[in-house]
Every structure is written in C-alpha cells, then in structure tokens.
Simulated assay, not measured.
Amino acid sequence: MSRERADWALLALTPGIGPVGVLRLIDTFGSAAAAASANLSQLQRCLGDEAARALAGRVATADVEAALTWADAPGCFLLTLADHDYPTALAEAGHAPPLLFGRGRRELLARPMLAMVGSRHATPQGRQTAEEFAHGLAEAGYTIVSGLASGIDGAAHRGALGTAASTIAVIGTGIDRVYPASHRQLAHQLAEDGLILSEFPLGTAPLAHNFPRRNRIIAGLSRGCLVVEANVNSGSLITARLAAEVGREVLAIPGSIHNPQARGCHRLIKDGAKLVETVDDVLDEIGRPAADAPVAASASPPAAESTATAMAETPLLVQLGHDPVDVDSLAARLELTAGEVYAMLLELELEGRVASLPGGRFQRLS
C-alpha cells in the first residue's frame, strides 16, 4: 500500500499534470504504478511534453519522499482517489484532487458536510452569526467545512469545534503551514478535534491562485454552501458559484442594506440562492442528517416578547438598531451629548452587547 501511495503521490505532485492529467494517466495505463513506471514516449501520448518529461525524470521525488515521511507522523495521512474513504461527493464533483494531505480526525470524511464561507473582513455581528449557525448545524449532525481564513471562516470553525460532527478546514497552503498566522491556535485545535486538508505540496506558500483551487474542494465535499456575510468581490461568491455548478444547494443569510459585507449575500439571493434566517431554515433546505439530532437554538431569533423587553430596558440599543451607527447620530436620536453616549456604548461594549467598528461606528451584538 505504501508503494501504491508513493505512485499516486508522484503523479499528483509532478508539476504540470494536475487532476485531469492524473485521471488521464490512470485511464490510459490502468493504475498509478503503471503510469509511474511508463517511459517518456508512452507518457508523451497522453501528456504535454513538459509534464511527460517531468514525470519520466521523477522531478517530484523530493516532494514525494517528504510527503511520505510527513504522513508517518501521528494524526497525519495521505488520501488518494483509490482509498475507500475518499469522499464520494468530492470524487464525483469533477477535477477532484488525486491526493490530499490530511491531519486530524479522518473519520470526519464519512460524515454529511456543509460549507460555511464568508468575508475575511466580517463585522462582529457576522462573526457571531457564523459561530452560532455553525454550532447549531454541527449539533444537528453536519460537519462544517470552511477555509481557515480570517473572519467568517474562523468563526464557523470555532462554532463547530467541540461537537461530535466538528469541522474540516480546507487550506490553500501546504498542510505544514498556517495562514493566516493568527489562526495558529485554531489550526492546532482543528488538528486535534477536527480535520485539516490540503492538496498542495508541503511548504507551499499562501499564493493567491491557490485559494480558488481550495474553494472547489470546499464546494465538492459539501451538501450545500451557506454564505454568511460577503461583499460583492468576495472569494466566497466563487465558492458559492462552484457549489452551484456541481449541483449543491446555495444558501445565504441576508443583512442590512447599509452593510457592504452583506451585498454579496443579497446578490446571491437575487440570483436564486435560498434566503435563510435560522438553523431550521438551513435544515429544511438541505435535509437533516438524523431525525433525532438536536438542533441548537442559539442561531434562531429570540422570541418577540423577550426581544422587546430587552430593548425596552436599554434605550440606547433601541436607537442603535441593527445597523452600524456613529456616536453623533446616536446622540441626536437620544438627545444626549456625544460624551454621554460614548460612555454608555463603552459600558455595553464591555458587556459584549455592542462592538466598535472602523470609522467610529458601533454595531449591536445582542
């Protein structure tokens, strides 16, 4: 098996071949071993000249040896298209990566999965929403798949960690690197209690063109793709498009019309994505993994009566509403001085009920 794994790694890690080229080689020669041992003239019949010479010359040998050594470490493994636990959904999605580096709970590959993606520059409310939805959906039985990026991705991973379904991070670097560096502790938690996947050779830097490739894996693994918060130029919309192209359900959470980080979600909804407001809305669209799986209520809106009571107790929150507001506007609404309003906001911020945003604005969290 180790020899077979080495042959798959050689095909997958040789520059210029790619997923389509690997499948062509397997189809032509019948196995990874036969393709790996083919001579140059045979390889040139199904590959470009440069890729054929690279494979015949075994230019990826060092990368293969590094991968095999890395996979011997505890919790680490290499997953190939020939393995019985390679996710069927990903294999059938097209351009499936022939080799994946994995670290963590391999058994998560057999669970139903849901992608959750969004802006790297998410608002505090967006991060809170992502974490609550991820926790509720993971409690319902879905393994949450995201990309370990800042913002919504990180919040989704944190929300799902600690549940049985947990979370999978598909990254755009070598699996031995953490990007962004601020997620080093989160990556450690994922390696212990979740799963990290990468198709890139060890040591691969966070190059911009790698992230769309990562996004296709996120989309292919998942039963659906939930976009929490995204601007119109967000890479999350690429993931949503890739999900739609392979027949996955696309869902989006609406936001304030004044929030630029919600406009990508609004565009998706205009284009046919399902508008969802609660965990139950998501489960109604994509199905429930188990009839008796509990659904956390934290992501659902509170009862109207309790909401009204909480707002009545805090006039500032009533005037703040759910859109970002600057101190001067709040002062005018409350007929108070800016200093008085700022002091009230500081107290609410310390209580975790509001968050400060760039530009001197504040947004309600509860």
Results as ranks from 00 to 15, higher is better:
residue 2 S to F: 02
residue 8 W to G: 02
residue 8 W to L: 04
residue 11 L to G: 02
residue 19 P to V: 09
residue 21 G to F: 10
residue 34 A to M: 13
residue 39 N to W: 06
residue 48 G to E: 13
residue 60 A to M: 12
residue 67 A to R: 07
residue 69 T to F: 00
residue 73 A to L: 14
residue 78 L to S: 02
residue 100 L to Q: 13
residue 102 G to M: 08
residue 105 R to T: 01
residue 109 L to K: 05
residue 109 L to E: 01
residue 110 A to T: 12
residue 113 M to S: 13
residue 117 V to W: 01
residue 118 G to I: 11
residue 129 T to L: 10
residue 149 A to I: 11
residue 155 A to V: 12
residue 161 L to W: 03
residue 162 G to I: 10
residue 163 T to M: 06
residue 164 A to T: 15
residue 169 A to V: 03
residue 170 V to D: 09
residue 177 R to D: 00
residue 183 H to D: 01
residue 184 R to T: 15
residue 186 L to D: 01
residue 189 Q to C: 12
residue 193 D to P: 00
residue 196 I to Y: 05
residue 206 P to S: 00
residue 208 A to Q: 12
residue 214 R to L: 10
residue 246 V to S: 09
residue 259 N to M: 02
residue 261 Q to H: 03
residue 267 R to N: 10
residue 270 K to P: 00
residue 274 K to F: 07
residue 274 K to G: 07
residue 277 E to H: 14
residue 278 T to D: 03
residue 284 D to M: 01
residue 290 A to S: 14
residue 290 A to L: 06
residue 295 V to T: 14
residue 297 A to F: 01
residue 298 S to L: 12
residue 302 P to W: 02
residue 323 D to T: 13
residue 327 V to M: 06
residue 334 L to V: 06
residue 334 L to K: 06
residue 337 T to M: 09
residue 346 L to P: 00
residue 348 L to I: 09
residue 350 L to K: 11
residue 350 L to H: 06
residue 352 G to M: 12
residue 357 L to C: 12
residue 365 L to V: 13
